[in-house]
């Protein structure tokens, strides 16, 4: 069978005709398979949802208990059959609960990787390469300029700055799902034991991560109590990036704006956002990880989606791998 008969792009999202299901659809559908909990991939309103237990929990936390008609939890590594199509979820290393979805039918195997990364991450299971005929890869950082450094080095720069500017608050912008918990976890791994203050928008997810056994240490809400703004001098506060240009940020003394994101690789991006200390920490693969992963899967064909498709397609061509952009709409880079 042809690959495009097994998975094809529809306005609702990536569709499997023989299995009659969608992967990460952007509009409400009858049956949706969800790779991970970021809001551009995991939307409410589907009749039936199949995802990992963590992704289902996260969707419930973010969208309410009635986010779908019915839900079914998949274990990582487990295979089920949907109308004769074999479906397997394998870890993607992106955020807690994230999975690649491997779809197999009549000898044709396609892996929809969702968002993924190869760097070690204590807050989720590591990516497992799956040999396949067609590999569907993201391309959020699909340009040779994106080379993520070791996250430990980035955290070391943050801690050095905290030491250099003890009278200021370090405000670390990090998206609520995944990045925030990863930054906190990295700080703990670096031996930072002080209380870390968090914006209210992170509370539910941090609590959830901790309930799943991920160590985040002592977290407190970043609210001004009886004391004053100076209470936060020398402290680290983590919050969603949008909150920093908000009036919320005024409660901190002379804050150092930090932003944990793969986009921080580009100086102009940091400058435009008024970021003083960019932390290049990403939950997506960088260029080297993308190209190495494509090679590792042994896929003869690659479909490239959401991001900078053209460079990755070009790289595949140079490497003798058939490749084409897969035009799916509606995916932002919420996770980074």
């Amino acid at each position: 069978m042809r690959a495009s008969d097994l998975l094809c792009s529809r306005p609702e999202g990536l569709y499997c005709p023989p299995g009659d299901f969608f992967i990460d659809p952007v509009r409400p559908v009858a049956r949706a398979l969800i790779t991970h909990g970021h809001s551009d991939h995991a939307r409410p309103g589907h009749r039936a949802v199949l995802a990992t237990a963590e992704t289902l929990d996260i969707m419930e936390l973010r969208c309410g208990a009635d986010f779908a008609g019915s839900k079914q939890a998949m274990r990582l590594g487990e295979t089920i059959s949907l109308n004769d199509v074999k479906v397997t979820f394998q870890p993607a290393g992106h955020v807690l609960g994230s999975a690649q979805i491997c779809v197999e039918h009549r000898g044709m195997r396609i892996v929809a990787s969702g968002d993924y990364k190869r760097q070690p991450d204590a807050t989720c299971a590591p990516f497992i390469p799956i040999p396949c005929d067609v590999f569907i890869t993201e391309a959020t950082f699909g340009l040779p300029v994106f080379r993520h450094p070791h996250p430990a080095d980035e955290i070391a720069r943050l801690l050095k700055s905290v030491e250099q500017f003890p009278e200021r608050t370090h405000l670390v912008g990090a998206y609520a799902l995944g990045k925030a918990q990863r930054v906190i976890s990295l700080l703990r791994q670096a031996g930072y034991e002080r209380t870390i203050y968090i914006h209210g928008a992170l509370t539910k997810l941090c609590d959830y991560y901790q309930s799943r056994g991920i160590e985040l240490g002592d977290l407190q809400p970043a609210t001004v109590e009886a004391g004053g703004k100076e209470d936060f001098a020398g402290e680290i506060v983590v919050g969603p990036p949008a909150a920093f240009s908000d009036r919320w940020a005024r409660r901190f003394p002379d804050p150092v704006a930090c932003f944990a994101s793969g986009w921080m690789r580009i100086r102009q991006r940091a400058k435009q956002r008024g970021v003083e200390l960019p932390l290049i920490i990403s939950d997506h693969s960088d260029w080297d990880e993308l190209t190495e992963t494509i090679t590792e899967t042994g896929a003869g064909e690659v479909w490239v989606t959401h991001g900078r498709e053209e460079a990755l397609v070009r790289w595949c061509e140079l490497d003798g791998i058939a490749a084409r952009p897969l035009h799916l709409v509606g995916y932002e880079d919420e996770g980074d």
């Binding site: 340009l143 040779p144 300029v145 102009q268 790289w315």
Partner: peptide, 12 residues
């Protein structure tokens, strides 16, 4: 590859 360099330079 000059094409990949071109994409990169255009972006940065």
């Amino acid at each position: 590859d000059p094409v990949l360099f071109g994409y990169s330079y255009d972006y940065v």
